[in-house]
Amino acid sequence: MRVVVADDVMLTRQGIVRLLRDAGFDVVAEAEDAEGLLRHVRLARPDAAVVDIRMPPTHTDEGLVAAQTIRTEHPAVGVLVLSQYVEPSYAMRLIQEHPERVGYLLKERVFDVAILVDALRRIAEGETVIDPTIVSRLVGRRRRDDTLADLTEREREVLGLVAEGLSNKAIAGRLFITERTVEAHVKQIFLKLQLNTNPDSHRRVLAVLAYLRAGA
C-alpha cells in the first residue's frame, strides 16, 4: 500500500514513516506542509495520505482543509487525519462531504502501530475511521431525556462501533457475532432512535454522530 505522510515536525514524521515501512507500507513521499502534501498526492497518486491537522502557516486546521481537498480532487486517495483535538466538529466536517475513505484519529495513537495499520487498512477498504475517544465521549454525553437508555447493552456497543466507522463485517468480527446479527442490531438501533438514514450506507456514521451530539 502506497502512502504519503505529511507532518511539519520532522521527528514525528520520521517516526510515522519508519513505523509504516516496518509494517510493510510503501511510503512514497513526505511533506511538511499542505502545499507539499497536495503536490505529492497529485504526482505520486498514493492509496492513502497520513496528515497532521496542524501545519504551517497558521498551525490551525490546514491539514483538515487539505484532507477535504484531496477527497474532492482525488476520490481514490484515502486520508487519515491525525489531530490533537477531541473535536467531533472537526471529525464531522471531514466526513460531511465524502463519508468514505477518511479517518480522524487522535495524534497520541499514531505510534501504536496496530491502530495505525488497522486505520489505514480500513480506509483503503472504503470505511470511515473515527477515534474511539471521540465516540465514547459522545456516547457518554449527559442527556436530560436519555434515548440511549432504550437500547440494550449490546445495541449500545454496536452503536459505538458504527460511530467509529466500522462496517457490519468488522463489527461482527470485533464482537464475535455473525454479520446477520449485526445487521439486525443496527436496524433495531436505527428504528429505536428514529434515524432515517439507510443503515447500510456510508452516511450512517455521520447520522449517528449528529444524533449523539444533538440535544441534551
Binding site: 490551525t60 467531533p88 472537526y90 449527559r142
Partner: peptide
C-alpha cells in the same frame, strides 16, 4: 483551539460534550 478556529457555536457544542451534566 476550536473557539479561535471555528467560532462560538462549535466551541459550545464541545463544551456540552464533555460537561458533567446535560447541557
Amino acid at each position: 483551539a476550536i473557539l479561535t478556529e471555528a467560532g462560538l457555536a462549535p466551541a459550545l457544542a464541545t463544551l456540552a460534550d464533555a460537561a458533567p451534566l446535560a447541557v
